[in-house]
Computed example of a mutant assay.
Amino acid sequence: MRGSVVICFLLIAALATSTAAQTDKGAYYKALASDEEKTIDKVLASLEAEKATPRVNAYKGVLTMKKAGFVKGVGGKLKTFKKGVHLLEEQIKGNPANTEFRFLRLTIQEHAPGILKYNNELHEDKQAIVSGYSRLDADLREVISDYAKDSKVLKESDLK
């Protein structure tokens, strides 16, 4: 009896964790689309509390790069941006076929100021997104499709 209670508890905990991870993914993309420092800080703090995984580190990297826009002073902005670049690039290096990571990098490259020279992989990332798009889950396909509506690099027609 006690063993079945423990197993039942573990199953509930596993379900709650997987649901929380989905919620965090949604919260992450909302924060990425947001222009509110408070929203970005809140999601970054929740990511810091999570177990480090390639996805969590990629999300932290991108949000850290976005956070750089709120940092005072050019030196602080650059340092924060580079910290985010390092986190994301490490995840892409370790998972080069991960379409989501390529999408994350494309979004930053497309909007980063030219002076940062963080735009050398736009074409390569676009191709990775186009070729991997059909294998993504429906929620992520929707996020990418919505992004493509306003993107100068990635077009909705590329995804069909």
Rank of each mutant, 00 (worst) to 15 (best):
D158F: 00
L88S: 06
L104K: 09
I92K: 04
K79Y: 09
V74C: 06
L154A: 00
A112Q: 06
S4K: 07
M1W: 08
F101D: 03
G114C: 10
K117M: 14
L122R: 13
A148D: 00
L88V: 08
T80M: 15
V153Q: 05
F9E: 12
F101Y: 14
I92Q: 06
Q91G: 11
R2N: 11
I40F: 02
I129A: 03
Y59I: 09
T107R: 14
A52R: 12
Q22K: 08
A16Q: 04
V6M: 06
K117H: 14
A27L: 06
Y133L: 01
D158T: 00
K160M: 01
G61I: 13
A128K: 11
L116H: 04
K160N: 01
E37I: 02
V56Q: 12
C8T: 11
K83P: 06
K77C: 09
S145Y: 08
K72V: 14
R135P: 00
I40R: 07
A14G: 07
A16K: 00
L88G: 09
N120K: 13
V143A: 08
S145V: 00
F101V: 05
N57R: 15
Q109I: 11
Y147K: 01
H86I: 12
H86P: 04
S151Y: 01
N120T: 13
L154Y: 04
K82W: 05
A33R: 09
D35G: 12
T53P: 12
G94S: 15
A97V: 11
K72L: 13
Q22G: 00
Y133N: 05
S34Y: 10
L154N: 03
S4H: 10
I144E: 00
G94P: 08
L32T: 00
Y59T: 06
L15S: 07
A31C: 03
G26N: 04
L44A: 06
E37P: 01
A16V: 02
A14T: 11
T23E: 03
D137Y: 03
T53N: 13
T107L: 10
S157L: 00
S134I: 01
E50Q: 15
N95S: 13
D158Y: 02
E124R: 12
D137F: 07
L11F: 13
L44G: 04
S134M: 02
A68S: 15
E89M: 07
D137R: 02
A14E: 09
K126F: 07
S46E: 15
I108T: 06
K152P: 01
A27R: 08
L32Q: 04
D139I: 03
Y29N: 01
L10P: 00
F70T: 11
D125T: 11
E36M: 06
G75W: 05
K152V: 02
D41V: 11
N120I: 03
K83T: 15
L11M: 11
A13Q: 09
F81E: 10
L44Q: 05
S34Q: 06
F103D: 03
N57P: 05
E36G: 08
K25E: 09
F81K: 10
K30H: 10
H111A: 13
